[in-house]
C-alpha cells in the first residue's frame, strides 16, 4: 500500500467548497496590483475629483453626497465586470476553469466562488470608499444603507453576468480590451458617477437603460432621497437575467 494514498472519503461539503474557492479568488484579486488600482485607487481618485471640482454643483445636494453613491456603483462595475471578467478570461485560457471543474468544486461551485469573491471585495470597497467619503463630509441617510447594499448586490449580479458573458465568449486579450474600454466609457458617459442630467442630451435617454446608469441612479436615489426607483431596479434585473442566460448559453469552458 502506498504511504501517500488513503481511502477516498468523498468531497468536502458544498458550502465548504464554495467558501474555499471564494477565499482563494478573493486573495488572488487583492494580491493583483492592477485589480487594486481598478477597484480602489481609480474610484477614490474619481471621488476626490468630483468633490474638488464644480461638476456636480446645482444638483440639490453637497458634492460628496451626490458623488459617493455613484462611486460605489463604479466600484461594483470595477470588481464584478472588469476585474472578474479579466480574471475569468485568463483562467479560461490557462485551463484553470477546466481543471477546477473536474474537482469536486465543479462548474456551479466555481461560479458561486467567483460571485462570493466579488461580494467580499465589494464589501471592502464600500468600507474604504465610505470611510474616505465620510472624511470628505459624506452624510448618507442611515436608513439608506440596507436598500443601498441590496442595490449594490443587484448591480454586482448584473455586472458579474456581463463580465462572465464577455470572458466566456472571446479571447482573454479581447476581454481585457472590452472590459477596460467599457469601464472607461460607462464610467465617464454611462450615467454611473455623473448623473444623466449632466450628460449630453443625446445620451440622456439611453443611460437609464444601461446597467451603469440604472445602478448609479438607483444608488443616488437611495442615499439622497431615501427612495428606491423601481424602473432602475427593473433595468438591473433585466440585464442580470438576459446576460446570465446568454452566459449560460454561450460560455465556452475551453
Amino acid at each position: 500500500m502506498s504511504k501517500l494514498l488513503s481511502p477516498n472519503a468523498g468531497p468536502a461539503s458544498l458550502p465548504r467548497r464554495i467558501m474555499q474557492q471564494g477565499r482563494y479568488e478573493t486573495i488572488t484579486m487583492l494580491r493583483n496590483g492592477e485589480q487594486l488600482i481598478l477597484a480602489i485607487v481609480l474610484p477614490l481618485m474619481a471621488l476626490v475629483g468630483l468633490v474638488v471640482t464644480p461638476l456636480l454643483d446645482g444638483l440639490g445636494g453637497s458634492r460628496v453626497d451626490i458623488a459617493t453613491p455613484g462611486i460605489l456603483a463604479l466600484c461594483a462595475m470595477s470588481t464584478a465586470f472588469t476585474g472578474q471578467g479579466i480574471a475569468t478570461g485568463f483562467d479560461r485560457r490557462y485551463g484553470v476553469l477546466r481543471f477546477l471543474s473536474t474537482t469536486p468544486l465543479g462548474r456551479g461551485g466555481l461560479i458561486a466562488g467567483k460571485i462570493l469573491a466579488v461580494l467580499v471585495v465589494l464589501f471592502l470597497q464600500v468600507l474604504v470608499v465610505g470611510a474616505v467619503a465620510g472624511f470628505l463630509g459624506w452624510q448618507p441617510r442611515p436608513e439608506a444603507w440596507l436598500p443601498g447594499l441590496g442595490l449594490l448586490i443587484l448591480g454586482a449580479a448584473a455586472f458579474t453576468a456581463l463580465g462572465l458573458l464577455v470572458a466566456g465568449t472571446v479571447r482573454p486579450e479581447a476581454t481585457l480590451a472590452i472590459t477596460n474600454l467599457l469601464w472607461i466609457l460607462l464610467g465617464a458617459l454611462g450615467g454611473i458617477v455623473v448623473p444623466a442630467d449632466r450628460l449630453p442630451s443625446l445620451l440622456q435617454g439611453i443611460v437609464h437603460f444601461l446597467p451603469s446608469g440604472a445602478l448609479g441612479q438607483a444608488l443616488r436615489d437611495a442615499f439622497l432621497v431615501g427612495a428606491v426607483p423601481f424602473p432602475a431596479v427593473l433595468v438591473l434585473l433585466l440585464w442580470t437575467v438576459l446576460a446570465g442566460a446568454a452566459a449560460i448559453r454561450w460560455f465556452k469552458w475551453n
Binding site: 477516498n8 468523498g10 468531497p11 488572488t28 483562467d91 490557462y94 485551463g95 484553470v96 477546466r98 481543471f99 477546477l100 473536474t102 474537482t103 469536486p104 465543479g106
Partner: peptide, 14 residues
C-alpha cells in the same frame, strides 16, 4: 468527481 483525479495536458494551473 471526488473519486476521479485529472491531469490536463495544459496543466490547468493558475
Amino acid at each position: 468527481r471526488s473519486r476521479v483525479g485529472v491531469m490536463l495536458q495544459d496543466g490547468g494551473l493558475p
